[in-house]
Design a protein around this nucleic acid. Structure first.
Lengths: 248, 248
DNA sequence: TTCGTACGTTGTATATTGTACAACGTACGT
DNA sequence: ACGTACGTTGTACAATATACAACGTACGAA
């Protein structure tokens, strides 16, 4: 029996921390994990996450598709690496003000990140894997919650709660934009196409409150849904909710 | 030029309201839209949304794959129909109590729906298309916000805010379960595999707060993430946040 | 009653996806 | 100097949504 050396598949964590064994045998590597990840991010930024296919990414890097599997075990891991790289690249300005201002800054920083990289909001899980970027981000954002009288568990709860809100708001904003773009209709065309049916079917006697409130909301924002307004409204509510915990 | 009759593709809204023209020509239809949707829901409940492929669903219904396109223009529309059917099937008990209890009931009803149909949380957009189920749901849930001194726009904002929180919480819970199942590792195996590297890399001097808080949170819940706890915590914060608006 | 045609059904086909596998060649360690 | 570990790549496969055309059914007009 020949001693076939089982090539140990790199773990996601090892990959995130770039803790690969680095064995010098064989041909030189033509790329680095960072280059692959950077190219993937650039591609996702430019054309959306659905454009990041193995073939396309390889083409972008001037390699054959299967080459990428030398650097990354699969697409899932690639997306995790992309996210951690994004987190690592965020600025972490030291905030010093009232807790509400500090948390507002955290929320806005996250919102901006997701709006600049719309694919990231959809790809990001509530608890990202513990890569260096995620750890630095967590460390930094926890600072905004120190010294408020919260215990450690509450600090974690509060941060996760705030971040989940921001992620969802950004996700909804991106999805709403994407749908609008995909439909190819502006608001006027949509109403011309669907208004007549809706008028017939949205009976004010069957849906009195819904028709009243829906109409008011639709007129208040220019459209059926205003993502920026939803974010602004929700952020105040979220901070008020945390205030009840902090200033108790 | 022969007068080729262009078959008008049914609009999503027409489909949701079952407002199809219903022309009697040709062979009898072997199915109904409701049967297709019901089968799709059953399949998604049993094996997840990724099991709902056109082929598989057709097989389940005893038809050839392409047959389904007679009933539904595409998969996107099918998912929308599945969601609206779910919404339509929800119970709508009339709540009469303090506003906080009413909103708690709304949140719990939504959370239960998403936990019973985990695929729905991920598939549901922030503003579902205006099908009959969504309209009935909207009408019912708005009742919980009537008479609190909010104007119509605020009522819509508040409801959307609450529902977004619930949807995200359910989504996170489902995703956390799915990841655990997909990894095939229980918590102990995961730690045996990743603990050593994490111990090396999570330097308490580099991440003092993160290590401290993360450890406390991990010990408080049994696992790294406790979805039910996150929901309970978040619901209280969300209601507190709305209280600041309502009881102002 | 007859017959044309609208439409339901279905088999075949295509473009894309992630990725398994094996052949090939490079360059390091012995 | 040479064997072998490993990077690179071409080919191949299974699975996806869905376009298209053939086929047959049964309604509506004659």
């Amino acid at each position: 029996m020949s001693a076939t050396t089982e090539t140990p598949k790199p773990n996601l964590l090892e990959l995130l921390w770039r803790a690969a064994p680095e064995s010098g045998r064989g041909p030189r590597k033509g790329l680095t994990v960072d280059e692959v990840v950077a190219a993937a991010i650039a591609l996702a930024d430019a054309e959306g996450l659905e454009a990041v296919t193995v073939r396309r990414l390889a083409q972008e890097l001037g390699k054959a598709p299967m080459t990428l599997y030398t650097y990354v075990p699969g697409k899932t891991e690639l997306v995790a690496l992309m996210l951690d790289a994004l987190f690592q690249g965020m600025e972490r300005p030291q905030e010093s003000g009232a807790w509400r201002d500090r948390l507002t800054a955290v929320a806005r920083d996250n919102y901006r990140l997701y709006r600049e990289h719309p694919w990231a909001a959809a790809a990001s899980p509530s608890r990202p894997p513990l890569g260096p970027g995620q750890c630095e981000k967590y460390e930094h954002e926890l600072q905004a919650l120190e010294g408020l009288g919260l215990n450690d568990v509450e600090m974690d709860d509060a941060l996760a709660y705030l971040l989940a809100f921001v992620r969802t708001a950004a996700q909804d904003a991106a999805q709403s934009e994407a749908e609008r773009a995909a439909s190819g209709m502006d608001d006027q065309e949509w109403w011309e196409a669907n208004g007549p049916l809706l008028a017939k079917v949205l009976d004010p006697e069957r849906f009195p409150t819904a028709v009243r409130v829906g109409q008011a909301a639709g007129e208040a924002h220019d459209a059926a849904y205003n993502a920026e307004h939803a974010f602004a409204f929700g952020l105040e509510r979220t901070l008020d909710g945390l205030a009840a915990l902090i200033e108790r």
